[in-house]
Amino acid sequence: MDIIVCIKQVPDTKDVRLDPETNTLAREGVESIMNPFDRHALEEAVRIKEELGGTVIALSMGPPQAEAVLREAISCGADEGVLVSDRAFAGADTWATSYTLARAVVTLGNFDLILCGKQAIDGDTAQVGPGMASQLKLPYVTCVQKLRTMDETGLVVERMMDDGYDVVRLPLPALLTVVKDINEPRVPSLKGKMRAKKAEIRILHAADIGAEEQCIGLAGSPTKVVSVFTPKPRGNRTVFSGTPAEQVEQLFAQLRDIL
């Protein structure tokens, strides 16, 4: 079973704070991490490989420093890391990203399965997985919470729905996006880390994947950011003061009507 896992390097958004003075993002100390959902996709791929054999390629699109997450993927069991990177990709929205990753997949050649995290924590769009499936004309299922069975012809998965789950069968090759419930990712192994350190990360530029200029980066993006802002605080605010007990008294007096 040859598997491609799509991995994104994201800022650890939970560390991001707004500077109350300047109302801008305080970036200091924000680390770049592997998108948490992708970690589960990778773990699932490695488990499938351990069971059925085959290879796992970790594929990422991003700036050169995104190489770090590919090395991390190798330390967690991926065989190879491929980075799609080009200044020309900058400004890509989910459409252009789906297109670019799909071109990279075509360039890599044969595969049986593509696994993606449900969404990336910096954008939360959940669009690139289905977008790639559309580009590659692959059957796909999103939000997979369990891989029930798998053989050379197809797989049976549980797809998380709002009101429960569906059990779905689909043929291979296929694309799945996974949720965190699917598995508990492992800690990178020591031997894996040593392998990752030495590994050669393959870099694919726009020309290497035969990407059309008007389909990548800002030019290939149908959506455009018009403005970015931080929301204004609400009106009518009361800040209590005093000891905890005094503050609770004041609050209770205010809430009496609601309760």
Binding site: R186, V187, S189
Partner: peptide
């Protein structure tokens, strides 16, 4: 088992026997 997957049990075992 998680430690085993992370190769920690191999830390003190000689390389010829599969350790680090």
């Amino acid at each position: 088992k998680d430690m085993a997957k992370a190769d920690l049990f191999g830390v003190f075992v000689p390389e010829e026997f599969g350790g680090l």
